[in-house]
Amino acid sequence: MNKLVLGIDGGGTKVLARIADETGATLGEGASGACSISAMPVAEAFASARAACEAALAGRSASEVTAVCACVAGFSVVENRYAFQALLAEWFSHAHVIVEGDFVAAFTGATAGAPGIIVIAGTGQVAYGENGAASHKAGGYGYLIDDSGSGYGVGRAALAAVLKAADGLGERTILTERIQDVVGLGAPEIIAAVYGGALDRVRIASLSKVVADAANDDGDHVSQRILMQAGGALAQIAEAVSRKIFTADDPPFPIVPIGSLWRAGDYLKNVFVRSAHRFAPQATIIEPLEPPVQGAVLRALRL
């Protein structure tokens, strides 16, 4: 019987599953809703994963699968991780099953499993790298602790800039008008909207595009500084990973930016690239080689 492996990439908005053979070639794929084991009940996260896996199996039996790697959001909540793994192991009773963080799938796909570092900057942020047996993660603390360099962090900084400009604590910024155009709120209403929930985490993160447009199209100095500070924050977490697992004597390795915030333009990217060349002169900045779900497949093939 041919070896079949299953990779699962579970995120806060959707989950993807991919069945592959022993060469890593895709045999089936499926998708479903959110699969974060910290932001939703484990049973609901598993139900989403199961729906995606059943679509990927396409009539095959779960008993045919020999290895499963599920890389899911919310991995740091240990008791939920074990509960999720137990549900998978009960279903795929003939398989070796592991559960890892979603950033692990992103890394393995982005580098095809080779040594390197990824820097994810979307709604949140995190840096993760591997070099042989060594691995390290930096950042990813969440928006309540510190999400500097994330879409949420940029959006939050934009709201703060608007409020400070209104109070005379900061310079005037076109963000005042641009944010009002997008969310329909002026400075007096912003605080109530944030604490009342009308401006939630995802909506605040979406304001990062407003900041990028103001920086790149309108030449707004406040927006440009916000993006440069975000680039610096992302460089800091990448450097922390690099210091832990690489030395100056190591051969060249890739640093892979991943996530929507990297599309914000050169004010962010140039700060990051300059810093990366300083702390890791041998590193090259590349695009991801494979998607995260294929990274999960590659991890499953190692089992």
Rank of each mutant, 00 (worst) to 15 (best):
M1Y: 00
V5H: 10
L6I: 01
G7V: 02
T13W: 05
T13N: 06
A17P: 02
G28I: 03
G30C: 03
S32Y: 03
C35S: 14
I37E: 03
S38P: 12
P41R: 14
A47E: 13
S48H: 05
S48L: 09
A52L: 07
E54L: 15
A56C: 04
L57Y: 13
A67C: 09
C71N: 08
V72T: 14
A73F: 09
E79I: 12
W91T: 02
S93P: 02
H96S: 11
V99S: 00
E100V: 11
E100C: 10
F103E: 07
A105V: 00
A106W: 08
T111P: 06
A114S: 13
P115N: 05
G116M: 03
I118Q: 04
V119A: 12
G122D: 07
Q125I: 08
Q125D: 07
G140V: 03
Y141Q: 11
G142Q: 11
G142C: 12
G142K: 15
G142T: 08
S150W: 01
G151V: 01
G155E: 01
G155K: 00
R156A: 10
A160M: 10
A161K: 03
V162A: 09
V162H: 09
K164P: 00
L175C: 07
T176E: 06
E177I: 05
R178P: 00
I179R: 02
G184C: 09
G184A: 07
G184Y: 10
G186V: 14
A187V: 06
P188Y: 05
P188I: 10
E189F: 00
A193W: 14
Y195I: 03
G196Q: 09
G196M: 09
D200P: 07
A205I: 01
S206D: 10
A212Y: 11
D213Q: 12
A215Y: 09
N216H: 10
N216P: 00
D218H: 08
G219H: 12
V222P: 02
V222M: 13
R225D: 12
L227G: 11
Q229R: 15
Q229C: 06
A230D: 12
A230S: 14
L234M: 10
Q236W: 02
A238M: 06
E239R: 15
E239Q: 15
R243T: 07
T247I: 07
A248Q: 12
D249F: 11
F253C: 14
I255Q: 04
V256G: 06
P257Y: 11
L261P: 06
L261A: 07
R263M: 12
A264F: 01
G265F: 00
D266Q: 09
L268Y: 02
K269Y: 05
R274T: 06
A283V: 00
I285V: 15
I286D: 05
E287L: 12
P288L: 12
V297Y: 06
V297L: 09
A300F: 11
R302N: 06
